[in-house]
Design a protein around this nucleic acid. Structure first.
Length: 219
DNA sequence: ATGACGATTTACT
DNA sequence: GTAAATCGTCATA
């Protein structure tokens, strides 16, 4: 992509202070940026998200008002990063939104790599010299993108608007006609909530985790 | 203290 | 398509 940035704008708190469905759609086309300790810039265009609606949402970690050490970040200010560890080996990253103490968030599920692609390839598990993952396998999933961007629990509670080790730049938003809505992935346990169309992806994009039924590509 | 279970990925058959 | 990997977290006791 050509969202190369001389002076890209870092998204500020008010951008995140909205309901998760609206934010999940509006995050498409924005650019997640990671600054490593050595100054390396990693960046990817957000192509897939999911909204988690908090206390009413059976699929959410905060369903029923559950509040534990793990999900505490979801009760923080909008624009907080919520990183959790799952399956004994994977990290997933969420953008907390809504209002403070309203535990709603957007899960980041897919990125189209923009900057630092070779570094991301080295970060991905299973990467072997001479057999690096294809670009569409680098960040096509919530745990894959955390691996590639080196996002782990040390970044839980990070403030995205502060532009520290991780933030989101404005990029270029995606028009409604380019957005596909469908049910979320991996939440079959959530009863009725499993079928709600709370997953958002850019139509026809090759960097998504699971192709959506009915996504016939651009146009 | 214990046991069941993941907002997943990968390697097989 | 099916199954293994792998362990922190949380509900139950």
């Amino acid at each position: 992509m050509r969202d190369r940035a001389g002076a890209e704008r870092c998204l500020e708190r008010p951008f995140f202070a909205r309901d998760p469905e609206t934010l999940a759609a509006d995050l498409l086309g924005r650019v997640l940026v990671r600054r490593l300790e050595d100054g390396t810039r990693l960046a990817g265009r957000i192509v897939e998200t999911e909204a988690y609606l908090g206390v009413i949402d059976r699929a959410a970690h905060t369903f029923g008002g559950r509040r534990t050490a793990r999900n505490e970040a979801m009760y923080g200010e909008p624009g907080t990063l919520y990183v959790y560890f799952t399956y004994g080996m994977h990290h997933c990253a969420n953008v907390v939104c809504g209002r403070k103490d309203e535990p709603v968030a957007v899960l980041l599920r897919g990125l189209e790599p923009v900057d630092g692609i070779e570094v991301m390839q080295r970060h991905r598990r299973g990467a072997r010299p001479g057999n690096e993952p294809r670009a569409t396998d680098l960040c096509s999933g919530p745990a894959k993108l955390c691996q590639a961007m080196r996002i782990d629990r040390s970044l839980n509670h990070a403030a995205l608007p502060r532009q520290g080790a991780v933030w989101i730049e404005a990029g270029r938003p995606v028009g409604d006609a380019e957005v596909v809505r469908c049910p979320r992935i991996g939440v079959a346990y959530a009863g009725d909530w499993a079928d709600r169309p709370l997953r958002f992806l850019i139509r026809g994009n090759a960097h998504v985790s699971v192709k959506a039924a009915g996504d016939r590509g651009p146009g």
